[in-house]
Simulated scan of single mutants.
Amino acid sequence: MTKWAVELVEHDIGYQPRKAIKAQALADFLAEGASLSLTELSPQHEERLPKEPWVLFVDGASSKEGSGAGLLLISPTGEELTYALRLDFPASNNEAEYEALLTGLRIAHQMGITAIQVRSDSQLVVLQVLGEYEAKDEVMKKYLAKVREAVALFETFEIERVPRSQNKRADALSKLASSSFAHLSKEVLVEVLKQKSINQV
Results as ranks from 00 to 15, higher is better:
E149C: 03
L124A: 14
Q166C: 09
Q166H: 09
E155Q: 12
L56Q: 06
H45Q: 04
G78Q: 04
S120D: 02
V151K: 02
D12H: 13
E32R: 14
S179R: 15
E65H: 05
G78F: 05
V192W: 04
S37N: 08
G131N: 08
T156N: 05
D171A: 11
Q128K: 12
E52N: 12
E155K: 13
G33L: 14
L130H: 00
K146M: 03
A25V: 03
A172L: 11
L184Q: 12
R169T: 12
P163L: 14
D88K: 14
E47A: 15
E132Y: 07
R164H: 10
A96S: 08
A69T: 07
T39V: 13
K146N: 08
I159T: 06
L41C: 08
S178P: 00
F89Q: 02
E187C: 00
K168T: 07
R169V: 14
K19L: 15
S92Q: 09
G70N: 13
I13T: 10
Y98G: 05
A5Y: 01
S42P: 00
S42D: 15
I21S: 06
A20H: 06
E160T: 14
R106A: 08
A69V: 11
N94V: 02
Y98K: 05
F89E: 07
L87H: 00
A170H: 10
G60Y: 09
L81Y: 10
A170I: 09
R119C: 15
A177T: 09
I74N: 00
T103W: 10
P43E: 15
L189G: 04
G131Y: 02
F181A: 11
G60C: 11
L85Q: 09
K194G: 11
L71N: 13
V188H: 14
R164T: 04
A182T: 11
A145D: 04
L36F: 01
V162A: 13
E187I: 02
I74G: 06
E97I: 02
P17F: 01
L85D: 06
G66T: 06
K19C: 07
E46D: 13
P17R: 12
W4H: 12
L105G: 09
N94S: 07
S42F: 03
L49V: 07
Y83R: 11
G68N: 06
E158V: 03
E10M: 01
A91G: 12
E79Q: 12
E46R: 13
V190E: 04
V118Q: 01
E134D: 13
F154P: 03
P53V: 04
A96T: 03
R164I: 01
L153F: 00
G66S: 04
N94A: 02
L173F: 07
D59E: 15
E158G: 12
E79C: 14
V139K: 12
K22P: 02
A150Y: 12
E158W: 00
T2H: 03
A27I: 11
Q110T: 02
H45F: 13
T103A: 10
